[in-house]
Structures are given as structure tokens and as C-alpha cells.
């Protein structure tokens, strides 16, 4: 399979009133066609910032490092500046679905008009064709009465239906890469199950690559092929989903799994990860997890270990500080 997305050594920093803060540090990851890469981590771990970097959607106070590369189809999209180029990654080759579909649709424009507008931007087709593609796509994602919904506003649809419409819109331009940022978090479990199955079917059908961002490890276990676990802007562990969930090495990954209530094991006590995520202004030196690590090594505790992933088994990468202390 061909590699769709290749991120190399990405650093993202923001200028704020309190100084420059690090949001993402030295991230490398890749997504192949037909592959789902799950990205997990707590709020503030840099998951969304990473995804937004791919489409250059981060705000004006963002700084990328000079040698960072985000390669899609052989081109480094971080170097894109012209409108024409940006169009290619914003909705052309890459599409994004967001957490809150109500906030993503314009409230005063009909859903159909929004779908047609973005199709016309990206495809050399006329309005009539755009409409038929849109209605087909709405049907494809399981919306009954697609033609009626096409002429409705976002507020007239229920939460689950809005999220389906959002997915239909993101997929109608046939992107190669789909960025899904917590697409099921705001939904009820029954609707979540519907949306997850829908995304899985569509990936298979179109051989798309997907970056699936979520904080729910259950959702990851059921959808992803590979997982990257992020903490304070750093990937602390990555590998095939089975390896990460059944054989986690990093203390943060283990902590996340232990904190999760498991419906199949009601007797297991819930173990929170001690402490709280440090403010980005007080980012620890050395291993970023050392302030919360349950059993750090002496070197790690003092911040003397530089972070970096090492391969512990084929395809399974763990931060070197976490290998020793876990």
C-alpha cells in the first residue's frame, strides 16, 4: 500500500502573551491508503493541533520548524502558500470532520447549498451534477429522505443526522485522506455505533486513509489499525492497535488503560493517573511525563533523559524513558 501522509519531525509552537509555548514536539507519523491511524491522548496533548497542521488551519500565531515536513502525494504541504495549493489540501485531497457538527455547518445556509458550494470549488462540474453527487452521498451515509434534507438547515436535523451530513459533505469530494477529530464524542452510544460502522464501510469502499482522533480507547480499539498515544505534544508510544492495548509499554498508556472503566471487568478498581497534565507554560524538561510517572527511574525523574522513540518489537515504538521505567 502506498503512503498517503508522511509527517516528519513536526514541531508546532504558539506565541501567547505569556511567551512561546510548545504544542507539538518532534512528531513523525504516517498513514497508508486504507489504514486507520488512531490518535489518543488527554485534552491539551496536541492531537487536534497535529491534524490542523496538515490542512494549515492553525491560527496566525503558529510557528512550524524549518525542517518539518508534511508530505502528501510527494509534496510538502507545509510549504504551500498560494490559494490554489491550499485548496488542494483543504477539501481536495484532505477532508476533515469535526466534533460538533452544529458548529461546523453555517446556520443560515441550507445543507445542500453548502455541499454544492464546496464541490464546485474542487471539481470541474456544474451545479446539477454537484447536486446529484451530494444527494447520492447523503443517501450513502444512511440519511432517509435525502432530497428533503438537502433543502433543510442544520438546526432541523438531529445530532446523529447532522454528523452523517457532515461526513457526507467531507466525503463528496473523494478525498484521499480523512481527518476525523472526535467525530463521535458528542453522540449517544447507539448513534456512535452507527457512525463508526459507517466510517469503516466507507474506508473499505474508497480505500481512504484516516486519522481518527479521540480520547476514547474503546472507539480506537474498534476502528484503528495503528495507534499513536500523545502526551503534552509528544508521541510516547505507537504501534499496531493490538500491541498497544494488550501489551502497552509506556506508563502513560498503561495509566490510560487502567483508568478506563471496562464493562467486561467490573471488579477492576478505577485507577486515576496521579497529578494533572502540566500547563504548557510549565513544560517539564527531559521526559514530559516525569511529573506524573508512578515509578520513574532516577535519571528520568531528574529530567536527564532526552525523549525519543525506540522500537521494542517490530512496529511497536516506545519513548526511551518509558521503556526503562514502565
Amino acid at each position: 500500500m502506498s503512503t498517503l501522509l508522511d509527517i516528519k519531525n513536526l514541531n508546532v509552537q504558539f506565541d501567547t502573551d505569556e511567551g512561546r509555548i510548545v504544542a507539538v514536539e518532534n512528531i513523525s507519523l504516517s498513514v497508508k491508503a486504507g489504514e486507520v491511524l488512531g490518535v489518543v491522548g488527554e485534552s491539551g496533548s496536541g492531537k487536534s493541533v497535529t491534524a490542523k497542521s496538515i490542512m494549515q488551519l492553525n491560527p496566525g500565531n503558529t510557528h512550524y520548524n524549518e525542517d518539518a515536513e508534511i508530505i502528501i502525494d510527494g509534496e510538502n504541504t507545509l510549504k504551500f502558500t498560494s490559494k490554489e495549493d491550499l485548496k488542494k489540501i483543504r477539501g481536495g485531497k484532505v477532508s476533515m470532520i469535526f466534533q460538533e457538527p452544529m458548529a461546523s455547518f453555517a446556520p443560515a445556509i441550507k445543507i445542500g447549498a453548502q455541499m454544492v458550494e464546496q464541490l464546485l470549488l474542487h471539481k470541474p462540474i456544474d451545479k446539477k451534477e454537484a447536486k446529484s453527487i451530494s444527494v447520492d452521498m447523503l443517501k450513502r451515509v444512511g440519511i432517509a429522505d435525502a432530497e428533503k434534507r438537502f433543502n433543510q438547515y442544520a438546526f432541523e436535523l438531529s445530532g446523529g443526522m447532522r454528523q452523517r451530513a457532515m461526513i457526507a459533505m467531507a466525503l463528496s469530494t473523494m478525498p484521499k485522506l480523512l481527518l476525523a477529530d472526535e467525530p463521535t464524542t458528542a453522540l449517544d452510544v447507539t448513534i456512535q455505533a452507527q457512525v463508526i460502522n459507517l466510517i469503516k464501510d466507507i474506508i473499505k469502499e474508497y480505500q481512504m486513509g484516516v486519522m481518527f482522533i479521540t480520547h476514547d480507547l474503546g472507539v480506537i480499539a474498534q476502528t484503528a489499525d495503528n495507534v499513536a498515544v500523545m502526551y503534552l505534544g509528544v508521541i510516547v508510544e505507537k504501534g499496531p492497535v493490538r500491541e498497544i492495548i494488550k501489551n502497552p509499554k509506556h506508563p502513560y498508556t498503561r495509566g490510560l488503560l487502567k483508568a478506563l472503566p471496562d464493562i467486561n471487568n467490573l471488579d477492576a478498581p478505577l485507577q486515576p493517573i496521579p497529578g494533572s497534565i502540566p500547563s504548557p507554560l510549565e513544560r517539564p524538561t527531559g521526559c514530559v511525563f516525569r511529573t506524573r510517572c508512578p515509578h520513574p527511574t532516577q535519571e528520568g525523574k531528574e529530567g536527564r533523559i532526552n525523549m525519543g522513540l525506540i522500537e521494542v518489537s517490530p512496529g511497536h515504538w516506545v519513548d526511551r524513558c518509558g521503556v526503562n521505567c514502565g
Partner: peptide, 25 residues
């Protein structure tokens, strides 16, 4: 039953299909 089966399992090998409820409340 449908609610319980809709909870995504943490075990990737546990691919039990959710009892899909059609439509919404």
C-alpha cells in the same frame, strides 16, 4: 441490550457487532 452492545469494546479482537438500532429516539 442494544445500549450494552453499542459500547465499543476495549479488546480489538472482540468484534461483536453492535445490535444496531435503526433511526433515532
Amino acid at each position: 441490550k442494544a445500549l450494552l452492545s453499542s459500547i465499543p469494546s476495549i479488546d480489538p479482537d472482540d468484534q461483536k457487532k453492535a445490535i444496531e438500532l435503526t433511526g433515532e429516539i
